[in-house]
Every structure is written in structure tokens, then in C-alpha cells.
């Protein structure tokens, strides 16, 4: 798209959106937020980038094909559920790790891993759809 304002703002905006999406993802561990909504924000960062800079640049920016990101996320989510077998618990049971050097850390858990998986699935799937739509135009 040939808009000076959009082209100038996009690098800044999409970077901020990606950062914010990760913030929302991690915040979702205990407060409103989470992988799904974070993933949507992340995917829209790539969508905006594709609109402003063109599809080729956006594909370079996301590095790996979106569908691979989605597949990896799904794999991560599935494995985070399977991980509880190592601890003798049921499928999808959350496992927490409270390391001695940081006993208050709440993020070392399979639950976060699952959420990261969801994040990647949403980023991959929505960015893939957005790119495909962009391709049509």
C-alpha cells in the first residue's frame, strides 16, 4: 500500500505489537490475557507489516512459513499435555517448577508451555490466512 504515514509507522507499530502480544501472553498466566488473544495481536502485527511493506517483506520478517509455526505450536501444546506422564499425573495436568533461586517465579510450568503453543498456533494460522488473502489482491 502506498501510504507514507502507514509505511513510516509500521516498523515501529508492528514491533510494539509483537512485544505487547508477548506481554499479553505471559500476563494470561494469572490475569486476563493468554495465548489466544496474544496470538491474535501478534498475527495482526504481521498482517499490518504485510499491508505496508508488501508480502515478500512480511514473509522475510516472519522467517519461517506461518504453517510451520502453527504446526510447531500444536506440537508444543500436545507435548506439554503429555509431559505430565513423567510426573505420574493424568494427561494435561499442569506441572510447576519452583526453582530454589527464584521461589516466586510462576512461569516455569507446562501450563505456560501450553499457552505458548496456543500463541504459536494462532500466530501461524492467522498470519497464514492474512498472507493468503493479501496474495489474492
Amino acid at each position: 500500500m502506498n501510504s507514507l504515514i502507514l509505511r513510516t509507522a509500521t516498523p515501529l507499530l508492528s514491533g510494539l505489537m509483537l512485544l505487547f502480544s508477548i506481554y499479553v501472553l505471559l500476563r494470561g498466566h494469572n490475569e486476563p490475557g493468554g495465548g489466544f488473544i496474544g496470538g491474535l495481536i501478534g498475527a495482526s502485527a504481521f498482517a499490518i507489516y504485510a499491508i505496508a511493506e508488501g508480502l515478500a517483506a512480511a514473509r522475510r520478517a516472519i522467517v519461517v512459513p506461518p504453517i510451520t509455526i502453527a504446526g510447531t505450536g500444536l506440537l508444543l501444546a500436545a507435548l506439554s499435555g503429555v509431559a505430565s506422564i513423567l510426573f505420574g499425573d493424568a494427561f494435561l495436568t499442569g506441572q510447576w517448577w519452583f526453582p530454589s533461586f527464584a521461589p516466586d517465579m510462576k512461569y516455569a510450568s507446562t501450563v505456560v508451555l501450553f499457552d505458548v503453543g496456543v500463541y504459536l498456533v494462532v500466530v501461524g494460522a492467522i498470519a497464514g490466512i492474512a498472507f493468503a488473502l493479501e496474495e489474492r489482491e
Binding site: P65, I67, T68, A70, G71, L74, L75, A78, L79
Partner: peptide, 10 residues
């Protein structure tokens, strides 16, 4: 897990 792997290797 198989489907996830297969999607990743699209």
C-alpha cells in the same frame, strides 16, 4: 502429535 508434526512439515 502426528498431525502437528505433519503440519509443521507442510
Amino acid at each position: 502429535i502426528g498431525a502437528a508434526l505433519a503440519i509443521a512439515l507442510w
